[in-house]
Amino acid sequence: MVQIDWYAWHRLYDRPKSKRAARLSQMQDLILRALDEQQGTPVNVLSVCAGQARELLGAVERFSRPQDVHAHLIELDPRNMEYAERALRDAGIGGVRTTVGDAGLRSHYEGIAPLDVLLLCGVFGNLTPQDIERTIALARAIVRPGGIVIWTRHRNEPDCVPQIESWFASHGFTGIHSGDRADPVAIAAHRLTGDGVPLPAEERVFTFIVGVAA
């Protein structure tokens, strides 16, 4: 299994001309658009495998109503969680709930619905195809009708992005942003236009294995 220091991994975001920093900016723009369209209060956001929540942080810092955003972060590395919680609170966010643990477990999602925005950034590239579909099924159970899922996935061969889009469609979602098809990483958004469903019965929804789908 690949071993990565996920706290140190985030330092590449601090290099303004890096590809990772450019992708981060794209994700932040998409999240900001999702926040801007939310009229209700509070705006409930969940970030899965949140890391340092750089994606959400950059959007909240430009959002006109940061105090209306209530975020739940699920992250395994306590150092990243400490960074994320402190940074979001400094940005004036309305509330932060944190769960330090394995985001692949169903129990972490009990009582979390309904979400306005669900972030699955940097997740699908580290799941098997079967676990990706199970995670999309989970999304349907925790996102409110009309809510938005924002996700990323590399386009390395075999390119799984078209299949992911198909799975979202089969679980009641409609694509609202697909990005540039020539980009090596898909940054996409889907809206739940179908009805909600109960949480899946199985406790293990997915297993995060670095590079398993590469």
Rank of each mutant, 00 (worst) to 15 (best):
I31R: 00
R33G: 12
E157N: 07
I148F: 03
R153T: 10
E82T: 13
D68Q: 11
R204T: 13
I93A: 12
Q39P: 02
L138I: 02
R106Q: 15
E133L: 08
H190D: 14
R144Y: 04
V69C: 06
A186R: 07
A21C: 10
L30T: 03
G95M: 05
L138P: 02
S178T: 12
A169V: 04
D102T: 03
I31P: 00
A87M: 12
A182M: 06
N156V: 11
G196I: 08
V205E: 08
V143D: 04
Y7E: 11
T98D: 09
S47K: 04
M27S: 10
L32V: 13
L138E: 01
E203M: 09
A139W: 01
G111H: 06
R23Y: 05
A139T: 07
A34G: 11
G40E: 15
D77E: 13
G194S: 02
H177N: 07
R23E: 14
A87W: 06
G147Y: 06
V123I: 14
E203F: 05
A182W: 03
L35R: 08
G179K: 01
L119G: 06
S107H: 14
R79C: 00
Q130Y: 04
W6I: 04
F206I: 00
A186T: 01
Q28H: 03
D131I: 00
D5Y: 10
G94A: 02
H177D: 08
G58D: 07
R54E: 10
A214I: 03
E85I: 12
M27T: 09
P200V: 11
L76D: 08
T41K: 12
A53P: 09
R62E: 13
H177L: 03
I148C: 09
Q163L: 12
R11K: 12
A84M: 10
S166Y: 06
D36C: 08
I112R: 13
Q67K: 15
F168P: 01
T128S: 15
E165G: 07
L57S: 06
D68A: 15
I74T: 09
A188D: 11
Q52F: 00
F168N: 02
G147H: 10
